[in-house]
């Protein structure tokens, strides 16, 4: 029985009269790439937000490694080991690429204000270690040539990759990617696919929200489909491809269904 890293249990989230998530349950297994798909407004990003502590579910619970997240603060959840990227890029635009990643790495650092004031040994050690880790991640993502540039000056594709590098720097066990290929051309998408596989092979578990069906089918081990805040299907890519409910709700196009 493979271990579950994250369990979402009967999660419902209401904003006033709107039900954004309606009794959604699924889990993520250690070491897999799980795809979360669904039409626009199905509640995919909302689901991310519940998992990362941005919203508290109205009812139901989220358990990470068997422990309920409860009312943990967002930065505490990050430290537990859930990291994410954003659908609309949210880097620190005026900080350099390497500084952006270092902010992520700082999630695992312990230098206090006093330590920084007197430049303690631990502070200097963590600074160096953080910088090295950041550079290594930039290399891994293939954007180390622009390490010293302000994030806002990076090309769009680099910004997307930088977000992933920053998320990886927080030392997560579960990496949540919110439409990482949005706005990419087919070539870039193929490269990203390769990267996501590489990330998984390094021992991370990946949750992927994506619109591009080919990308999702090509890279994921399992897929969960949401529609109008409800889970309508769950299974392997080939099962999902055949599922009539999914075809009706989402794919709809004969070539894709074939």
């Amino acid at each position: 029985m493979p271990e579950k890293i994250l369990e979402i249990d009967e999660v419902t989230l209401r904003f006033g009269g709107v039900t954004a998530l309606d009794g959604v349950s699924f889990h993520i297994t250690v070491g897999e790439i799980l795809g979360l798909i669904g039409p626009n407004g199905a509640g995919k990003t909302t689901c991310f937000n519940v998992m990362t502590g941005v919203y508290q579910p109205t009812s139901g619970s989220v358990r990470f490694e068997g422990e309920p997240l409860g009312r943990r603060k967002r930065h505490e959840i990050t430290r537990l080991g859930i990291a994410r990227t954003f659908q609309n890029i949210r880097l620190f635009p005026e900080m350099t690429a390497v500084e952006n990643v270092m902010v992520g790495a700082d999630a695992r650092h312990h230098t206090s204000v006093v330590g920084a004031l007197v430049r303690s040994r631990r502070h200097r050690q963590e600074e160096q270690e953080g910088r090295e880790k950041a550079m290594e991640l930039l290399r891994f993502m293939g954007i180390d040539s622009r390490a010293g540039d302000a994030a806002r000056n990076l090309p769009y594709g680099y910004q997307r990759r930088l977000e992933i590098a920053r998320a990886l720097a927080t030392g997560p066990k579960l990496l949540c990617l919110d439409e990482p290929a949005a706005g990419f051309n087919p070539n870039e998408k193929a490269e990203l696919l390769e990267l996501i596989r590489k990330i998984r092979d390094q021992g991370y578990t990946v949750l992927l929200i994506e619109h591009d069906m080919r990308l999702v089918m090509g890279v994921t081990d399992r897929i969960v489909v949401l529609e109008f805040g409800r889970k309508i299907a769950e299974g392997s890519p080939s099962e999902i491809r055949e599922n009539p409910a999914v075809i009706a709700a989402y794919l709809g196009v004969p070539e894709d269904a074939a």
Partner: peptide, 8 residues
Amino acid sequence: DAAELMGV
């Protein structure tokens, strides 16, 4: 918000 979600 992004800072908080990156563990700050």
